[in-house]
Design a protein around this nucleic acid. Sequence first.
RNA 1: CGGGGUGUAGCUCAGCCUGGCAGAGUGCUUCGUUCGGGACGAAGAGGUCCUCGGUUCAAAUCCGAGCACCCCGACCA
Length: 562
Amino acid sequence: MRMSRMMLKTLREAPAEAELPSHKLLLRAGLVVPVAAGIYSYTPLGWRVHRKIEEIIRQEMDRSGAQEVHLPALQPREPWVQSGRDASMDAVLFRLNDRRERAFVLGPTHEEMVSLLAARHIQSYRDLPVTLYQIQTKFRDEARPRGGLIRVREFAMMDAYSFDSDWEALDQSYQLAYDAYFRIFERGGVPVIPVEADSGAIGGKDSQEFIFLTESGEDTILLCDSCGYAANAEKAEFRIPPAVASEPLAMERVHTPGQKTIAELAKFLNIEERQTAKAVFVMADGKPVFVVIRGDLEVNEVKLTNALKATNVRPMEDREVEAAGLVAGSASPVGISGIQVVADQSVVDATNLVAGANEVDWHLRNVNYGRDWTAALVADFSLARDGDRCARCSGTLHEQRGIEMGHVFKLGTMYAEALDVRFLDQAGQRNETVMGCYGIGVERMLAAVIEANHDKDGIIWPKDVAPFDVHIVALDLEELAVERTLTQLEEDCEKAGLSVLIDDRDDSPGIKFKDADLLGMPVRLTVGPRALAKGGVELRVRRTGEMEIVPADQVVARLKDV
RNA sequence: CGGGGUGUAGCUCAGCCUGGCAGAGUGCUUCGUUCGGGACGAAGAGGUCCUCGGUUCAAAUCCGAGCACCCCGACCA
């Protein structure tokens, strides 16, 4: 490819809207062009990278025994109603009607479609196991697209689905996908760690995310410094700090003028935060819930959602608090009625806590669970935080930010039940298939590759992702020897199966070198009078900056070693 | 949806406070000189100053409403 002919425009400066290094470089290198929030067009160069990533994914998925299929992006809405996700994914679904007013959605994911496809083919245990995958455009009306290609509204995703006869068989399919994922990220040059993730209300079993640890990530991960336990904050288990032990005392009112937050209250009464009970108000699937947790802890909304078996839990808005007749700042589970009360295990285990009195400027001392109040539900839904103790060893958990690069998940039988993916086993019994699902976002991977592989001058593509294998900078093309060497090199490379980008533009050497660094091909060859005089062409490795002069006829052989 | 920020040339931004000819750098075009790390000179093209409304003799500038984009949060199979 000759750069003089390629539709490419590099930018000296990144547009102001870009903050992440990957976002800046994607725009500066001219790989993508923004169209709307979370929607991008790809240029010829950008699309080559996209296809390279797809290629890695295809190779590794095929190697794992998965079979590629293609499911529609435009889907009838009915199966979504059947699976219950028309309601549960309400806000992210793009919906539309056809000319006869039949309802459709643009697929945000493909469990429904793959289940319908699989249901037609899976009849007997002899048809199992099978893993299907596709690379297909997904549409999600995200609340907030962000970070360039990190979170977008239209994107390509490789999604795979395994079908097995039982949970034990699923373990094997899951492991195959898990291993394939590691190979994919390794080839892309993105360092990932597997972390335990929430499996949600759909009742799956194991769920792991492949996380690329980076400050700019949007997920919070907790890592044990001793045993290696790693989990998404929404899932992380930890040891709750012990309560202050004491014998139950008689409950009494205490005047607390103006004391509303736990911090204020603890300071005012000269006690520790863990000696208080905190009230948190949420709406769970539209119903108000009074949540009680020890004052020094935070509520983990995902754990709470699961404990409540709800699909959507969010903090109450002020007017909802008012409508429920709750006294913000002094709310108490003691003597409350007309609202569901749920308690975290931490308040059940503690004695003599300070809680609200359901009256402004008053609190209660020595409140004890069981004696003074009870909850409809007691569960463990506190949020692990930096510095908490690991649940599995004596180590300490540390918080880090990360980007979710891939997700593997033992789904179970939910979709098989809803969409009738069943088979006859050896005993002639009809059973649901046990599903697993696995996803990797191509755009997010592309962004992460850059995030993990760049320096101040530009991108440093890993070999398998680079849009071209070799970048040839031609200087002084009017010189006959240069032209001749260039043509020879191009032929040699192509014969050897190497893709070549040739900078034959009529620009100064400085511009060409800067662009070569920015565009980041693994190897740069400089063909010019100066190198020719030294007996060859200059070979420079982008990642290390190492340079050497190589005789023109030995370049291809030499390239095999770098 | 809540909070913050920004909208002026392809890109980066100045001008706005204090109303009075639409600006700079870079990029682009042409010519000449250069030619191994974003060269130099000269001449040029390029604008819905986000949109709509208002105030005014006069609005990029003041006022109001809206929209878009970015960041933080909520949300996110």
